[in-house]
Computed example of a mutant assay.
Amino acid sequence: MSLSPRSFDKDKVILAVAAPLLAIVAAIAITSVIIAAAGNDPLHAYQVMVDFGSKSDSQVWIINKATPYYLSALAVAIGFRMNLFNIGVDGQYRIAAFFAAVVGGALTLPGIVQIPLIILVAMLVGAVWAGIAGILKTTRGVSEVISTIMLNAIGASVIGYFLQEGRLAKKEGNLIHTPYLPDSAHFFEFPTTPKPVYGFVVIAALAGLAYWFVLGRTRFGFDLRTVGRSESAAQAGGVSVKRMVITSMLLSGAVAGLVGMPTLLGVSYNYGTDFPTGIGFTGIAIALLGRNHPVGMALGALLWAFLDRTGTQLEFEGYAQEIVGMIQGVIVLCVVIAYEIVRRYGLKTQQRKVGEELAAQARTSDKAEVSA
């Protein structure tokens, strides 16, 4: 008795579909109970969210909002694939966007040079800031969780020091910001109605494709995943664990540097006190939600943006302001639990089938010996 490749693939597909379905059903059930306990109608809440989210202006808003979410999730996922918890994406993208804005605002070059230069500066600054945590981990044994949290605070202080009138910023009304980027640094937009979709969504898609190829189809990606699963096995295979730790942190920081670019190059055109914060922490949740898969994280980013958008409408309908945050937390929790349940079930099923196959082979061998 042996398992055919077709039956094995079928079981694999079933398990892959079962996890998200279980998570969705559980999340809807738990959320409905909580909404009902608060004295509101959960079905009406879902109807409001679907109706408002399906409008054309909401769809454009969701795509634009999901773009930095997705880039943040990619940055986090690079660390996750190697069992590193880069909790410093928030600080990395903010300090990267700040210095990219300073450099971009000080130069006036053709767009074909200006835009890549700004993006390159952001990626370099993000990589250097994340690389500090990698060096501390490999040379002094400092946990990347602790060092990246501290670097978030240090980065905010550095920005606060330079983001002052007379230093690297100027005051305009009640806002303090870096000099405006020249027109040549404005990223292109898709002419959608009623508002345009930011062209940086293309960069985000290319980053996702590069993530999939490098981590899933190259020797470097294989080594990175091997270190994440077993450092001792990787060392036995000739992989330098320290070098992989530093490299993965540099890559994670470089991608983190892209997170602020949709806003800098497509919305604000400067870095000011009102620049978006907290996207890095949202990326952690989305990476968990998408299970570090580029397509899964894209869907997770769209879902997160959808909840952000429709949550404002729920407030007008009399629902509590915290309802959206609760829904997001429940979804992430259900996804993590559901995938773990399905993983354990799949492992037990595979072990049982292997045991049955070995038992069948043993019986066949015994019959052959008796016949002989």
Rank of each mutant, 00 (worst) to 15 (best):
I132G: 09
V332R: 05
L299S: 05
I246C: 02
V125C: 07
V202F: 10
M123Y: 06
V113D: 01
A106M: 11
F281K: 00
M244D: 09
R363P: 03
G290E: 10
S2V: 13
T273P: 02
K242H: 11
N152K: 10
W61P: 00
T139M: 06
R140N: 02
V336C: 01
I154R: 02
T138R: 04
I24F: 07
K171P: 10
G39K: 15
L84A: 01
L136S: 07
K170G: 06
I132S: 07
I323Q: 09
G238E: 08
Y211N: 10
I119Y: 04
L251Q: 13
V241Y: 11
F220L: 15
L224V: 14
S252K: 03
T138A: 06
I246K: 13
A73S: 13
F52W: 12
V227M: 09
A156V: 10
M150W: 01
K353F: 13
L109I: 14
T138S: 08
I87A: 00
N40E: 11
I149Q: 08
G325Q: 14
N270Q: 12
A204W: 03
R81S: 09
A16S: 10
I63P: 08
G280C: 09
V145C: 03
F275Y: 15
V330P: 00
L303D: 01
T178F: 01
T364K: 14
A285V: 08
E144G: 13
G131M: 02
V332S: 00
M1V: 12
L84R: 05
L303F: 07
L120N: 05
L124G: 04
V76I: 11
T349S: 14
W304G: 08
A301G: 07
V201R: 10
I132V: 14
L15R: 14
G199T: 12
L288R: 07
L209R: 09
Y345G: 11
M261G: 00
N40W: 05
L117T: 12
L181C: 12
D90Y: 01
N174L: 12
V202E: 06
G346R: 00
N83I: 07
L168Q: 07
E315W: 00
A122L: 03
M82V: 12
D223T: 04
G238T: 08
V214F: 07
Q235I: 11
V103G: 04
L136Y: 10
L288Q: 02
S7T: 14
V103H: 11
P68W: 03
R167T: 07
P191I: 04
N86D: 01
Q361D: 12
T312I: 15
I132R: 06
A204D: 03
S72E: 06
A234R: 12
I87Q: 00
A169L: 04
Y93P: 15
Y319N: 09
A16F: 06
S143E: 12
V336K: 05
G39Y: 08
T139I: 00
G155W: 00
T273A: 03
N270Y: 04
A66L: 02
M244C: 15
S268K: 12
V330S: 02
A77I: 01
V145M: 02
Y46Q: 08
A37F: 09
I286Y: 01
L117W: 05
C334P: 05
E315N: 14
P179D: 03
I149H: 08
T263Y: 04
